[in-house]
Amino acid sequence: MWNGVGDLIVAIDGVAYGLLLYTVAAGLSLCLGVAGVMQLSHGTAYLAGAYAAWALMHGTWVGLLTALAAAIVGGAAAGTGLALLLEAVPRHLDQALATIGVALVGAYVLTEVWGAEPLSVDPPAGLGGSVDIAGRPYPVYRMVFIVIGAGLAAGLWLVVHRTRAGAVMRAVAADPAMVAALGIPPRRMRAAVVAVATAAAAAAGVLGAPVVGPSPGIDHTVLLLSLVIVVAGGAGSTRGALVAAMVVGQIQTTAVAGWPTAAPYLPYAVLALALLGRFGINRRRSA
């Protein structure tokens, strides 16, 4: 049922939330689909980024840029370390174990440093207010986030589909042995993907902190939603991840506003429907 401005605001919120989920899930999708590594510590990078925002931002632009730089550098370093660990455990199942362990240790360290209480992060000066959308106030930061998120999505698409690095990435996903034969070490490629993905998740944590703030347990929530998006959109497909993230973002915000008890279940319903659709198509193709 359309109820005018209220629904419009919920819809815009859904776009912001969807783009936030996309910036985290796109990296995970590349890890799973392109680098071929099982990564269950991806939510920890988001949480660490969000804590970095809380510690460094203090509502200033300089703080935001510092936090962003710290998150990208720290995320890339942590991602490289994680990639080294994952090289030592080549099988997916062992990678799942190792990254569950990393997530547990990471969550412990973050809770030790910043405590178990949820923290709230203020957006930088000038973005803290709200704008009028058809007479209703709407937080400026979320509007700005939509622009940034859309920019990130476009940038990622360009990198994956229009650059040499992206072509190599897609080639690794399709045929790692062939890429290795061409003289490009798949190991270095995998490490680069994991490092970039972790840095992206940490950056998403900084940018998303004023929307979904740092608190213990957020790492798990973000990981679960990202996994849902990656599997629903098809691992390795950034386009599929974008569609799935937008659908999950929209459904989540709509449900939280209108049907809160169902909200936690709906992402999984989306996942089930997406898989049902995909397997249905496969069956028809193979028949």
Partner: peptide
């Protein structure tokens, strides 16, 4: 308070031990 840390280390150690 350290049980999550210990459990996490057990997970990583188990994966590494199986790896090689």
């Amino acid at each position: 308070g350290t049980s999550p840390l210990l459990l996490g280390l057990v997970f990583v150690a188990a994966a590494l031990a199986r790896g090689g």
